[in-house]
Simulated scan of single mutants.
Amino acid sequence: MKPIIVLTLLISLNRLSQKTTIYTIGDSTMADKIKPEENPETGWGQVLRLFFNSNVIIKNRAVNGGSTRSFIDEKKWEAVFKVLKPGDYVFIQFGHNDEKLTDFTRYTNPHTTYRHNIIRFVNESRKKRAIPILFSSIARRNFNENGVLVGTHGDYPLETRLVALEYKVPFVDLEYYSELLETSYGPEKSKALHLHFKPGENSYYPEGKSDDTHLSRKGALAIARLVVDQIKLMNNPFFKKLKKQLL
């Protein structure tokens, strides 16, 4: 092989080795959506790549309907774990579907199964020398008649915080920051962050839509911006590399 070709290959491999991979695991508020050119629903993990330079690879493994239980039982975590390599990041956000009391395939007790599943994601990421980052669930648009935003996630965000403290995991309190976002828009204007369409207003939802959990593209971009802003502000040394790769 000619020296010039060898040199080119070495440079290419070196550039590839410098790339940072972020795996995002979680639920539909984070997941990629089908037919994004038509579908107004957008996951915040779907647009996260827009905030990083080309040295960051986002591999969004979040799934619609995902809970910590189903993500493990359906072997989705196993698929991520197998390919993790040293220096990768794992962004972890669950809770919305762990709350589903009527679905035994997804429900977890926040203080037992949910907690231990989150610990598993953390420990197994570290086993591969990857860097886990924990996120509390984003807030739902749930204003009462007095215009007060009321939380819906129970103790799941609390357990996420406690695991982060106990296991010294970088933590972004996305529930808190998304609550601030929702309240800054107010009860009516915050509809734009979610999926609110009258019949005939949007071709993807011809019969209309009223969804206060999932995000519009506007909402997804706003949540991704919150994540990026927190990465910029945190002094945790694990964020040092990511900070340099933000746009």
Rank of each mutant, 00 (worst) to 15 (best):
L13V: 13
A192N: 08
S203F: 12
V172Q: 06
K19W: 03
A220R: 02
I92W: 00
E182G: 00
S125R: 06
Y176I: 07
Q245D: 13
R15H: 14
F52S: 07
L48H: 10
W44N: 03
G65D: 09
S136I: 08
S125T: 12
S136Y: 01
E159R: 06
F197I: 07
E159Q: 14
V163P: 02
T112Y: 12
E207W: 09
N55D: 12
F143D: 03
D173S: 07
A222F: 05
S70M: 09
S136G: 08
W77R: 08
D32T: 11
D32S: 15
D103I: 10
V228L: 07
T160V: 13
T108R: 04
A139R: 10
Q93V: 02
T108A: 06
T8I: 12
R225K: 10
S28K: 05
I58V: 14
S125F: 01
I5N: 05
R129N: 12
I5E: 12
L246G: 09
K241F: 00
M30C: 14
G147M: 05
N144W: 04
H96A: 11
V90C: 02
L134N: 06
A164H: 04
T8W: 15
I138T: 14
P237F: 05
D173N: 13
E38T: 11
F135K: 13
R69E: 09
F197D: 04
I119V: 15
N236T: 09
T213I: 15
N53T: 04
K35E: 07
L242H: 01
I92M: 01
I133E: 03
R126C: 04
K232C: 06
A139P: 03
K82A: 11
Y114E: 06
A220F: 02
L9V: 10
L165I: 15
R217E: 12
I92D: 01
L162A: 11
D98N: 14
L84C: 07
R126F: 04
A192D: 06
E175H: 14
T152A: 10
K189W: 04
F239G: 08
N64R: 09
K241E: 11
V227K: 09
L134D: 03
